[in-house]
Design a binder for these strands. Structure first.
Lengths: 245, 245
DNA sequence: ATAACTGCTTGATCTGCATCAATGCGGGAT
DNA sequence: ATCCCGCATTGATGCAGATCAAGCAGTTAT
């Protein structure tokens, strides 16, 4: 799970473009800038439906969205949390493979598909940056498979909290200090459960167990305090490489 | 298993290059051809170790390899099966994130890292094709997360067999007919179990249950016959989109 | 304030898969 | 052939997490 807020490869930020394109074709930059438009959607909006055509490709500017697939019998599995700088839609693939839903108010930087695809095929810089972003997502997706396939419920929840804390720290461009950390959860228990491949009840029980063990405090359901981050991280770090980088 | 695959994006095949590069810079093609070399490794060879430097990028020409991560306590999760035309290593990432092991004798088409990375940054065609391949892998990895997170043991095994059959059919460039299909499993029960996030015993029991239900026959542990492919596929297809594309 | 609603927690029970433990089977060496 | 040895199957039992079922707390409406 890559949760940094200001990746090198973020495609909606002109400052990044300038850095990357410094000595490259400036017209490429102009075209990318010209092709984009911004739009904000309220919480709960379906930004894409699995199998349905997706005529805009977007980069998330602000907010949080979820990517999931739902079975006919109701089982749901999230395959990713989409955060600022993450990309929605794929060049060359006209439809979305997953449901994408705004988990909070979300602002997108949108590119009309045809324009963007032309850029990707003709501009080496853009294509290369898309490749780097996609490789990051691939690593995250594979790491996620490891979590879902082999971790216990407790490990899944700890892993979730630790990564959320690390992302938050990265967003503020500092590292997680050895001390206390406070988190606001962007997701409901149900969404967390669907993310972790668990039920709501099991997820809730794991939060309660961690609280009883003194590893977290929960002033409210959506707020988590971690008095000793290292102690929490030890629950998963000490015995494997299963931590999502 | 016959592994002659012929994806559009396969990077070791000059014929494909020619098709893609037809009107593009031919020197790019020359350089790619010049940079490659072939090598064959016996079954069991560790082609890459998680965290270790990987100085060659490779395209699989023949054989089968597995990608996995192992926890300190022995838990192991495979994150992918690598088959001909699949790629090992990532431009811009000097180390492998996973253990990659030859599951059978494997022939690789290898590119020296520096040469290949130069090609990716300078040649739009190569970069674009890498992007398409990576997007395919990303879809597969996310689909895999859905399988691991929400499918039952039986569904996992059925999904595995159905996908293997489909890949095999795709390799022979035909579709899976409505009738009987014969498969040779390229993996041991243990490896299948690690792939599916199950134990050996559960995997074996599921094979036995499918046999008892008449959905498969197993002339040997490594050979599976599917008398009615559609009937098997119905076990998963009718209620979701959880099939790996 | 009270009611009604929604999301969270907790308890009791059930079950699917893991674990522990034999047993069977096939292919290679002698 | 016979003895292996690694792999696969099958059985008995245990347990983590799912399911079923109440309660509870925060929020919005009246």
């Amino acid at each position: 799970m890559d949760l940094t807020l200001a990746k090198e490869s973020c495609l909606h930020c002109p400052i990044r473009h300038r850095a990357v394109c410094a000595e490259a074709d400036r017209s490429e930059l102009e075209r990318l800038e010209a092709a984009k438009s911004y739009r904000t959607f309220p919480r709960g909006t379906m930004l894409a439906e699995a199998g349905e055509p997706l005529d805009h490709l977007s980069s998330i500017v602000a907010g949080c969205a979820t990517m999931s697939r739902t079975f006919a019998d109701g089982r749901r599995q999230m395959v990713g949390l989409l955060l600022p700088s993450d990309f929605i839609g794929r060049p060359g693939r006209p439809t979305s493979a997953y449901n994408i839903e705004a988990a909070s108010e979300v602002t997108l930087c949108r590119f009309e598909r045809r324009m963007f695809e032309e850029l990707v095929t003709s501009a080496p810089n853009i294509a290369h940056r898309m490749l780097v972003m996609t490789l990051d997502e691939l690593d995250a997706a594979r790491d996620w498979a490891v979590v879902l396939g082999r971790m216990t419920a407790r490990e899944k929840v700890v892993n979730f909290l630790v990564n959320l804390a690390r992302r938050e720290a990265a967003a503020h461009d500092g590292s997680v200090s050895g001390g206390a950390v406070a988190l606001h959860l962007p997701l409901s228990r149900e969404t967390i459960a669907d993310y972790l491949g668990l039920t709501i009840e099991t997820t809730s029980r794991q939060f309660s167990a961690l609280r009883k063990d003194g590893l977290i405090a929960t002033p409210s359901a959506r707020d988590v305090q971690i008095p000793d981050f290292e102690a929490l991280a030890l629950e998963i770090d000490d015995d494997d490489g299963g931590v999502i980088s």
